[in-house]
Write a protein that binds this DNA or RNA. Structure first.
Lengths: 278, 278
DNA sequence: GTGTATTAGTGTATGGTGTACACAGTGCTT
DNA sequence: AAGCACTGTGTACACCATACACTAATACAC
């Protein structure tokens, strides 16, 4: 959040990276040697706390705190996660939490990573890559819907922890079996991950509404109220036509719609793989 | 946010929608006839305020307030947008803002819609649908990167206003030229929109960092710090391999990577169109 | 004109938030 | 026994959204 301190730690490059457009390579090169100060923030997600033996024994573990915060988020949404609420749920005072996390931001980092969980394990015998990737995307979507508050913290705010990496590892593993180059695998990974997150927004919104006690019909009415403004408005004829088109008898559920789109995306990827192989 | 009041306003349906999985049709049917109370929240985005003639003349317009809030968000991020900051920038006291917006949430709704802006106008003669959709996705991505705080408010929080609809109208118009059914056009729209939003996350994160004065290299170092944890860690061999693979000489920029993925997605859509046409 | 209803903006107050800081107690280490 | 590092608490502060009561301005009814 605050300004970083060491501006010229990445000098002595071939070209001055400040003038070019940023490439994935820059990120990846940066991942090899990193200013130690930048590691600080996500450190708590990785380190075993060294627990010096002196002093009174802590009544909590960082994990206790994270679990309590997650329960609150599950029950009442991310905005209900206050330092006081977390502490109260554990029977401590607000400030006790600060013995385990230096500030709320760091705690939320850990909460997000914990909520991210793990991808489903690989099954043997392994099916073709496409089936695996399909299952991965579905699982990721399901995971987001199960904890809809996960999507409430954008990228910058939440650094990426071990669980997040485990999802990337899983899909990287599946995609590695396509025979594509590392760069192309990275590209395909971005496609599937991007589609999955972006196209799950609606379902996440519904899940969030449900978690707050709203029924599906109520949520639909709310979203429909916004969409319906298009109907009869001359500014939005094409979109209104989509809304008012007669249903062809077998309307898609949100999940079916996601699956349908995913198949199109995978079609596109498959096409590329075949073209690359020749 | 608060619980809705009229629970059984959508009875007398064919099947009780509460038990089935929710379909797109439910949303769209809901958009035709809507509980008037639900219209309230997004009303300010649509109504011309009727301006009864009595009383002192207002010193501001809702638009003034929105503009001020947007300038603050552009300069210092969404978290800097406080009622006090907005009022101060306009030379008023905090509470004056409440004469124009009933609460901060509603103001932010308007700010988000204003920040969303309009899609680029159609050019004549119109190119094939694919080129138009491609341009649309790029424009949407550019729009998100230009105002990276837009992505900081998730779906539920921000209802959809007229500008948001104008983007949907634009792509619906382009996709209408494919000859697909309304349902399929809706599906394709979700795919492109989903991919565009999801796959722009990284670029949005970078844009946000830049808006806060961070250099590209600094941002890359931060993200790289998280990614780099995979390197050498036996839990993430495949992903680490992607990171450490030797660059093949022409690394993709973030934008090129997005375009590349978009082509794959459009390939998949095109394949479907061709299959449908036969 | 003279009231009177209606609205714009202000000042003040309240409850909630993250967190700095000083302190008291605890239990190993020397 | 003394020291020390650590845990949890109490207090305090700055900031935030916002309810409420008030003043001042304006236009309409008479």
């Amino acid at each position: 959040m605050a300004g970083r301190k060491t501006p010229n730690s990445t000098s002595r490059k071939k070209r001055p990276a400040s003038k070019r457009a940023l490439t994935h390579d820059d990120m990846m090169q940066a991942s090899v040697r990193v200013d130690p100060e930048l590691r600080r923030r996500s450190e708590l997600l990785w380190e075993d706390r060294s627990r010096s033996t002196r002093g009174p024994k802590p009544g909590l573990t960082p994990n206790d705190v994270v679990q309590a915060a997650m329960e609150i988020a599950d029950a009442d949404g991310l905005s209900a996660v206050t330092m006081h609420a977390v502490a109260a749920r554990l029977g401590f005072t607000t400030m006790a939490i600060y013995r385990y996390f230096p500030n709320k931001e760091t705690l939320l980092d850990a909460v997000v990573d914990a909520g991210t969980g793990f991808p489903p394990p690989v099954t043997e015998p392994r099916p073709e890559w496409r089936k695996e990737v399909f299952a991965w995307a579905r699982a990721k979507r399901a995971s987001l819907c199960a904890r809809p508050w996960l999507a409430e913290l954008p990228f910058v705010v939440a650094p990426h922890g071990p669980n997040w990496l485990s999802w990337l590892e899983a899909i990287a593993d599946s995609l590695s079996r396509t025979g594509l180059s590392a760069a192309d695998i990275g590209g395909m990974l971005s496609i599937v991950d991007g589609y999955t997150r972006g196209a799950s927004d609606t379902a996440i919104s519904l899940a969030r509404a449900r978690a707050r006690g709203m029924s599906g019909a109520e949520w639909a009415a709310g979203v429909g109220a916004d969409l319906g403004r298009a109907i009869g408005n001359p500014r939005f004829p094409r979109f209104a036509a989509l809304l008012t088109a007669p249903s062809d008898g077998h309307p898609r559920t949100l999940d079916e719609s996601f699956d349908f789109g995913l198949e199109r995306v995978l079609d596109g990827i498959e096409l590329y793989i075949k073209a690359s192989a020749s």
